[in-house]
Deep mutational scan, measured.
Amino acid sequence: MISLIAALAVDRVIGMENAMPWNLPADLAWFKRNTLNKPVIMGRHTWESIGRPLPGRKNIILSSQPGTDDRVTWVKSVDEAIAACGDVPEIMVIGGGRVYEQFLPKAQKLYLTHIDAEVEGDTHFPDYEPDDWESVFSEFHDADAQNSHSYCFEILERR
Rank of each mutant, 00 (worst) to 15 (best):
K109G: 03
A29G: 04
V75N: 03
V99S: 08
P25A: 04
M42A: 04
A26R: 02
D131I: 05
D79K: 11
W47I: 12
E139W: 06
D116P: 06
R12I: 02
D69I: 09
Y111M: 06
Y100A: 03
N18C: 06
F153N: 04
D122W: 01
D116K: 15
H45G: 12
A117G: 08
Q108F: 08
P53S: 14
E48F: 13
M20F: 01
M20G: 01
L8H: 03
I60E: 03
L156A: 06
T68C: 15
P25Y: 09
S150A: 07
V72A: 15
S138F: 04
V75W: 03
P39M: 10
M42E: 01
W133I: 00
A84R: 05
E154S: 14
D11G: 12
E90V: 02
E90F: 02
H149R: 07
H45T: 15
K58Y: 11
N18F: 10
R44N: 15
W30E: 08
P39R: 03
K109P: 05
V119K: 05
E118M: 10
H114W: 13
D87K: 08
A84K: 06
A7I: 04
D144Q: 05
D132P: 10
K38M: 04
V10Q: 02
R158I: 05
P39F: 08
N18S: 05
E118P: 14
L36M: 10
A81T: 04
A117I: 12
F153E: 02
E17N: 05
V40T: 12
L28N: 02
W30G: 04
A6N: 05
D131S: 04
L110A: 02
C85P: 04
F137G: 06
C152A: 10
C85I: 14
L4N: 01
G97M: 05
D69C: 13
S150R: 09
R158N: 05
N23E: 08
V78R: 14
H45I: 02
G86P: 13
V72R: 03
I5Y: 01
H124D: 09
M20C: 01
I50W: 02
P55V: 12
W74H: 09
S138M: 10
V75M: 11
V13M: 05
E139N: 07
P21Y: 00
Y151A: 09
V40N: 03
D116G: 14
S135D: 05
I91K: 06
P25F: 12
A19F: 15
I61V: 09
I91T: 12
I91V: 15
A83H: 11
V40K: 00
G67Q: 12
F140S: 11
R71D: 11
W74I: 10
N147L: 02
A19C: 14
I94C: 04
K38W: 04
H124Y: 03
D87P: 09
